[in-house]
Design a protein around this nucleic acid. Structure first.
Lengths: 107, 107
DNA sequence: GTCGAACTTCGATGTCCGTCGTACGATCGC
DNA sequence: GCGATCGTACGACGGACATCGAAGTTCGAC
């Protein structure tokens, strides 16, 4: 086997498929907003499990799926882990200022 | 009675009380987002009932209340009507770029 | 004063969603 | 192979929410 076997990206909407209502609904949940804030810190992506939040694994899977299907984050499979990555370029292109405005909020 | 009897503003959070999660949750609903888009067109405010949407009056009251309590809009009583007004200055000050980013979305 | 228009309030209903536990699957290291 | 770790899938449950209809209130016009 090659050293790097998988570059598998989990299914996600293309940039032109992203809908603003879905994005806002995804960001409307406190838990998911917290994930986005953490992901915004590390532009290179973060292992999903390494973000400490008081929820179980299945709940985390649920929230990350919603963020991914809304087009807010992308996920890459790396061994047994999933690396999450904020789709800042896509969001900035579609809704310039939206992400920065949200991240400017006092947390 | 004086000619202008009421400047009554319905209760709403002060600028520093506005919470980003509530704002995003309020904007996450398609009906409410549509109201915001309409209100953004007329900076001077709009009579609530003059925005045509396929919902009943009580549902409209519900959505407008959520927008108001989240700090997205303000409402002024004028006779039997309520004039809604997008709180653009407050939102822009708190989350610069957020509103413009949202309104830039294709609708 | 009476009528109609504009909103609100209340109760009811159905649906969606956040949460969890358990079971299952995939991958890595030994 | 074996066990441990990481994540997903599924079913269930409780609370929140969007929606409505009907009744009530407030105001303006006639």
């Amino acid at each position: 086997m090659p050293a790097v076997a998988q570059d598998a990206r989990l299914p996600q909407p293309a940039r032109e498929e992203i809908r603003i209502e879905q994005v806002l609904a995804a960001l409307g949940d406190p838990v998911r907003l917290q994930y986005v804030r953490e992901l915004a810190k590390c532009a290179d992506g973060v292992a999903c499990g390494s973000i400490p939040l008081p929820i179980t694994k299945s709940t985390r899977t649920h929230h990350l799926r919603i963020l991914r299907e809304a087009g807010v984050i992308s996920m890459r499979v790396e061994g047994t882990r999933r690396i999450a990555h904020l789709r800042r370029d896509d969001l900035d292109a579609l809704y310039p200022g939206l992400l920065d405005g949200i991240l400017a909020a006092p947390h």
